[in-house]
Design a protein around this nucleic acid. Structure first.
Length: 582
RNA sequence: GCGCCUAUAGCUCAGUGGAUAGAGCACCGGCCUCCGGAGCCGGGAGCGCAGGUUCGAGUCCUGCUAGGCGCACCA
């Protein structure tokens, strides 16, 4: 038996998840038989069967223009080369040999350069409405991940200052990516790495000390490269209240260490609270300082040396990262005997894999992309496969307000605090907007739009659809029929174009979830949510739900309810609320 | 100088090698005897440039141009 892959392929080469995927599988089988048959009957050369096998499921697709059919195969186009025949000829041969028994196919046709299109009976998907209502909050999940353990590490902001908007973006993206992977059947842990060791922490301690001395009325200034923000003064004040007496009697260096420890604790606590407020909870908060206490750095260095990937030059210890694709070798231990920042990070990743994760995903900020090659090289030097570590870059956020880039805080320091943004636009809008763009592209965050409580704001547009459905389901005359549900005969009554389009959209959820998870593209979810809401609004506009005709009313109520469930599930993955009233 | 990312509609962005390249915003014009009008319908224009691979390229490869970011025995 083949081992489940830690990161199955995202693109063609696999069947889709859900009901649509089942139909793809069935049609693919049919096409395959048709190829085999044509070969047996020598209407196609033997090479065709072989070439077809290499294609895998990729030959089946859903035409962009649905009027062309519900599915299409490009097999004939792809076999044209190997067969040495015109594609349309091949398509005709395949069509002639199709065995469609047991399939809801009403028509096939050869079209364009050699597509073979399948038109299905209009109601072929209607029973997903009942499926969705049965599955409830589980609808959309699949088991492609087979329980493989995956870690997603994200945010991991330095505990030396407040969280910025990029951290907020990373929080939204990382959390939703983790949720997507869970929904696709992976065993996921969310981890936050606390950089609570090293020279930055020392600087933090010295910055607090300077402010604290100033509070005593003494002459002092924040050291070169120290932290200037006003929050340092807040920390110094809090420190004075709790530890002031001790500090005045303490030795200078010991005091700096104590202040650093105090500041880190306080900072991390604030970060944790803000993230929780934002709907993001981590399974593990991993301390660099504690890792280093265990001797992990030394063991990692010894491991790398034992594996023969290090050498000495100019009094320093180097790691031969160029052997694994980096553009230059990296220093692990400086000539003064101190480790560089890389070594603890390598030790950290070694620790991750030693905890049993088959696949590790890091979300890094835009300033770290130069760092990807060396980290991936180091992981390989430790003997792990090249794709065991996956690094995604979360790009910068530019806030736009009043049509121009905004500066939201008068606080000193460059970053705009996450707090201010969330306070301004709300958690739902912030999370949704962060998910509207691919994480590796720069994001213009339109604050005015995010605050609109109207349809031009996508998050309200989607939430409104949910509230509107909830309102219908609340109607007194609906109650009994919502409970009764709709059987196959009733669901078969759903044949209006807007009903069929809505059902088709509902049926796409499992594949949207799996696709977004495997491609690491959480932004697809928001797009899907908007499309689903659009399909619903269109249905609502064209079809009255609470009609007198009882069977039809039951069917439409079931459809509305299935839409409500699907919207709620998508929004849950996004970390956005699904209100019943607005 | 080297490396990474980006280049699609006026703006912000989607677009898994397939048929006539999509959405939102902005702009203009329609639709409320009815389940929430926070809704629906209609209206324009576009793949930076030049080659290449392919039956087929916005998508893959090379070069160029223009933006963004990164290049330490700093973290």
């Amino acid at each position: 038996m083949r081992e489940p892959r830690a990161n199955p392929p995202a693109g063609p080469g696999r069947f889709k998840a859900g009901k649509v995927g089942e139909m793809e599988r069935a049609l693919s089988c049919t096409v395959r038989s048709a190829v085999a048959k044509a070969c047996r009957e020598e209407r196609l050369p033997p090479a065709a069967a072989e070439a077809f096998e290499e294609l895998g499921p990729a030959h089946l697709e859903v035409p962009r223009d649905r009027s062309k059919g519900d599915f299409a195969t490009t097999a004939a186009l792809r076999l044209a080369g190997p067969c040495g025949m015109p594609p349309r000829r091949i398509a005709e041969e395949l069509e002639a040999g199709l065995d469609l028994s047991g399939l809801p196919v009403v028509r096939t046709e050869v079209a364009g350069p050699g597509f073979l299109n399948f038109h299905l009976a209009p109601g072929w998907l209607n029973d997903v409405v009942a499926d969705i209502r049965r599955q409830g909050s589980a609808y959309g999940r699949s088991d492609l991940g087979r329980g493989v353990r995956v870690q997603v590490e994200f945010v991991s902001a330095n505990p030396t200052g407040p969280l910025g908007v990029v951290n907020a973006r990373a929080a939204a993206v990382g959390d939703t990516l983790a949720s997507l992977l869970e929904a696709t059947g992976f065993d996921v842990e969310r981890e936050y790495y606390i950089n609570d060791a090293g020279s930055q922490i020392d600087k933090l301690g010295r910055s607090v000390e300077a402010r604290w001395l100033e509070l005593q009325g003494l002459e002092a200034s924040v050291p070169e490269g120290g932290y200037q923000g006003e929050y340092i003064i807040d920390i110094a004040r809090a420190y004075e209240a709790e530890r002031g007496e001790w500090a005045r009697a303490a030795d200078g260096e010991e005091r700096v260490r104590d202040m650093a420890r105090f500041a880190v604790e306080r900072m991390v606590k604030t970060h944790r609270e803000q993230l929780a407020e934002f709907g993001v909870e981590f399974d593990v908060w991993f301390s660099q300082a504690r890792l280093m206490e265990t001797g992990a750095v030394e063991r990692t260095l010894a491991d790398l040396e034992a594996r023969g990937h290090t050498y000495r030059k100019d009094g320093a210890v180097w790691l031969r990262t160029t052997a694994f694709g980096d553009d230059k070798d990296r220093v692990l231990v400086k000539s003064d005997g101190e480790p560089t920042y890389v070594l603890p990070d390598i030790a950290y990743h070694r620790d991750k894999f030693s905890r049993g994760f088959r696949h590790v995903i890091d979300l890094l900020g835009p300033d770290h992309h130069g760092y990807v090659a060396r980290l991936k090289a180091a992981v390989q030097a430790l003997g792990y496969p090249e794709d065991a570590l996956e690094i995604l870059i979360v790009q910068v956020v530019r806030l736009v307000e009043g049509g121009r880039p905004a500066r939201m805080s008068k606080r000193r320091g460059q970053i705009v605090p996450m707090e201010d943004l969330v306070e301004k636009v709300g958690r739902d809008a912030a999370r949704f907007f962060f998910l509207m763009r691919s994480q590796d592209s720069h994001l213009d965050f339109d604050i005015d739009l995010a605050r609109h409580r109207t349809a031009d704001n996508p998050v309200y547009y989607v939430q409104y659809a949910h509230a509107r459905i909830s309102s219908i389901l609340r109607q007194p005359e609906a109650a009994a029929d919502v409970r009764a549900g709709a059987g196959p005969d009733e669901l078969a009554l759903l044949l209006e174009p807007s009903e069929l389009a809505l059902i088709r959209k509902l049926a796409d959820l499992p594949e949207e979830v799996a696709g977004a998870a495997l491609a690491r593209e959480p932004h697809r979810l928001t797009r899907y949510a908007i499309e689903l809401a659009t399909a619903f609004h269109k249905f609502y506009d064209e079809c009255r739900v609470l009609v007198d005709d009882r069977p039809l009313r039951r069917a439409r109520l079931a459809l509305a309810d299935a839409t409500r469930i699907t919207l709620a599930n998508v929004l849950a993955l996004c970390g956005v609320s699904a209100p019943e009233r607005m």
